[in-house]
Amino acid sequence: MQPETIQTILGAVLTFAVLSYLIGDNAVYRLAMHVLVGVGAAYAVGVAIGQVLAPRMFAPLLNRPAGGIGPLVFALFGLLGCVFLLAKIFPRTAWLGNVAVGTMLGVGAGVAVGGALFGTLLPQTSAAAGSLGPREAGGIVIGLLLLASTVTTLLAFTYRSASRRTPLGAIGLIGRGFLYVALGATFALVFISGASVLVAWMRNLYSFAGG
């Protein structure tokens, strides 16, 4: 039996196992979920070790790095961080893991905040402001529509009990409508994506079955 055949058969079995959730929660569905989570986790661990740990930490420590001492220093820092994280296993030494976790969180937060600020907020704000310009005939209209939808949507997120009875609260209802449309469109797109996958897979199964 060809590996592709086995792959297809397993895929089909797992597909129907997941689809069995339509009739209710059952053990077959749970089995498919367990397989999905387990295989995904195992593959992730393998990739992490092969793609990250091995070339970036083990190799410089075991072999003389060609790029000088820099990679070795980074490898040592990485090894130290791994040891600190492993120290979280024991309550007495758990405080050591806080150092590594704090470093990760700090670096990630810094990169994410910077990217959000300079990669999203500022550029899109300037773009939104520029859309009000008379460059295109429909630019101003679209820009105003975008501005109105943004402002009204923000006004919809007021949680005061009497907000609906105020003028701003009434305007917020318009923003709520925009929210409904946006969320509905997002849901529809997600749903269509899933349907596309289902159709494609059904096609493959049909082809495998000799259709």
Binding site: V111, G114, G115, A116, F118, G119, T120, P123, A182, A185, T186, L189, V190, I192, S193, S196
Partner: peptide
């Protein structure tokens, strides 16, 4: 990807292949 490319000052253009859920 978009934010970091902008933050890093990468000059290479970005072409996105997005699913229906990511398109909006």
């Amino acid at each position: 990807w978009i934010e970091q490319a902008t933050l890093s000052g990468a000059e290479a253009p970005i072409v996105a292949g997005a699913s229906a859920s990511a398109l909006p």
